[in-house]
């Protein structure tokens, strides 16, 4: 018998948010309005941290952080709510000149994550050549293949980050994390790219129960990459988190409508976002009952 570590990495939402420091680079998993660690994002919005560099395939995570003035620089390929193409808060932040932007092609972004995850300084890809992405990122360099083809490629720098935040379906107390939905997105790469990764999950389970709900391949993130884990039921709301919950399309509409109007946004913020995560979930339930 080898000794079994009982070290639990279970933390509270506010402990995780409280461990972040102003000026940090934060990666956020998910994709658009899909499986975003929204409970953690909401907690950051209500924390004093500011001046963040945010790396994300952007959705309402980016929108909310912009609305709360937390973002100094955003690194992304897009920001969208999927069923609603444009994110109102992100648009306003850009149009007001409130944030700096590093705009990459989706594939360049992925190679930047792969590079960081593997501790490589960069990875080469042709994607981006010829487009204005190179014009607005003058720090990007190209590299020529040392082989016979001599091809010119973009050397995408590693997207290193201080902290990654991801939302999974299941996790155990030691930080092993599982996705049960149709797409892993890039969450494992975020976890490997970051110095510290925090996992929120729909449900904490015993290690021995992880394979009861999904196959071996659904164990996406290893505890060796994880600093802290927290159970946040419905914590991706209003984004998708299949099979636990679908996107709350009605609530997303409410959010997008409120986000486009300052007076409505003040009311939305007051009603849904002024308390902690439990208060948020209560307010959402009340709203859902009222709108039935």
């Amino acid at each position: 018998m080898s000794p079994v570590s009982s070290a639990s990495k279970v933390m509270a939402i506010d402990e995780i948010a409280g461990s972040l420091e102003s000026g940090m680079t934060i990666g956020i998993g998910g994709w658009g309005s899909r499986r975003k660690p929204m409970a953690l994002v909401r907690a950051i919005c209500n924390s004093p941290v500011t001046d963040l560099t945010v790396i994300s395939y952007g959705g309402p995570d980016v929108g909310l952080l912009c609305a709360y003035g937390k973002v100094r620089r955003l690194v992304t390929a897009f920001v969208t709510l999927d069923t609603i193409p444009l994110e109102p808060h992100f648009r306003q932040a850009r149009q007001n000149g409130d944030i700096q932007l590093t705009e990459y092609d989706e594939g360049m972004f992925m190679f930047g994550l792969y590079a960081a995850a593997h501790r490589l300084p960069f990875l080469p890809t042709p994607a981006g050549l010829g487009s204005d992405v190179l014009k607005v990122n003058p720090e990007l360099r190209t590299i020529r293949s040392p082989y016979e083809d001599g091809q010119e490629l973009v050397a995408v720098p590693a997207l290193t980050m201080d902290v990654a935040l991801v939302h999974m379906n299941r996790a155990d107390a030691r930080g092993n994390a599982q996705y049960l939905g149709p797409d892993p997105y890039m969450d494992d790469l975020f976890a490997k790219a970051a110095d510290r990764t925090y996992v929120s999950c729909e449900r904490l389970v015993d290690t021995g129960d992880l394979l009861k709900e999904g196959p071996l391949q659904s164990l996406l993130i290893s505890r060796s990459q994880v600093t802290g884990v927290v159970e946040t039921p419905n914590g991706a709301h209003f984004t998708t988190c299949e099979p636990d919950h679908e996107r709350d399309e009605a609530f997303q509409k409410l959010y997008a409508k409120a986000a486009a109007d300052p007076a409505e946004w003040t009311a939305f913020r007051e009603r849904f976002l002024s308390g902690d995560e439990a208060a948020y979930q209560d307010a959402v339930r009340t709203w859902q009952e009222e709108s039935r």
């Binding site: 897009f78 920001v79 969208t80 092609d105 360049m108 994607a127 981006g128 050549l129 487009s131 992405v133």
Partner: peptide, 8 residues
């Protein structure tokens, strides 16, 4: 939206 996958 942002460039999405357009360049590649």
């Amino acid at each position: 939206l942002g460039v999405r996958g357009g360049p590649g």
